[in-house]
Amino acid sequence: MTGLMRRWLAHAIFALAAFATPLLLSGNRYFAFIAGITFFSVLWATGMNLLYGYTGLMPLMFGGIAGISAYVTIGLSANGWSFWLAMLVGSVAASLVGIVLGLPALRLRGFYFTLCSLVIQTVITLAFVYFVNLTNGDVGISHIPLPELPGGRQLAGTAYELVLATIAVIGVVVLTVIVESSFGRRLTAIREDDGLAETLGINVTRQKLAAFFVASLFASVGGALYAPYVGFISPRSFDVLLSLNIWVMVAFGGRGTIWGPVIGAVILAPVPFVLQDYYTIKDVVYGLLIIGVVVLLPGGIVGGVKRKGRADAPAAVAKQAAPVR
């Protein structure tokens, strides 16, 4: 096997599985829909991974950025724009907002930035409720038309899920390319010690803002496609719970690894559907899952496996004994 093939083997398998799933499930709209939602989760978890896993910033306004993009895209489409142009404008606009909302990260680190992002998310949600003219407030927007394809047909059903699969695959490939590039190296350096990174000549401000732009693109492309897919959006669709759900997927699967958040999303995104009949305990289960992840799997599934692999090697025993920061 050539190096190139080995390097992209996992991606090829993932792409095959992603494209096969909607085709295999095309007979059952409900299952196909769960697959569609899972693709959104993969895309979003991968985007948040860039910030949370590789840059060390936990952005709880991630859902809000997806929402801004969704509302802008739907608003423009309703005014006669083609969906695809509206999505482009909406995504870029929301990502630019993402840069502005990332500005506190230039001063705040770790937990303090997370707290700040929580406040930002809350303000975004309140804005969605407040600007009734644009968002229809708490009532939300329903009967969102499906995107039109060239030739007048609508993107619907299995074709829609194939588009989502494509976006999810592109997202994972983009993250991989970033992580292996010098941009990714700079972000990892910032995660590890941003002061040292700056001393070594890295423009920390610029890199952080670039990370916010790229991660926000993941959020906003997902948000724009989410609205017509589900057909209904409200401020609740993009509140802090969405951000937290994505965060759990990233943490559960293993932040700072390419595949951890993908695995986290594939495992966790269908859970609410599975638990639908047990809605009284759904939140309890989810809460326990979050606590379990934080306590038992600080490195997530993939992180845990990696650590075990290292611990098996004799040279790594000393590392395990070293105090955890």
Partner: peptide, 30 residues
Amino acid sequence: AAAGLTRTYQAVRVFSELTVQENIATALVD
């Protein structure tokens, strides 16, 4: 740093989760 003036810290500072090789590569990146 780009002008050619750099420093070390009183308390040792390296990217402790990264390998030595990765530390060097990070120093080279910019």
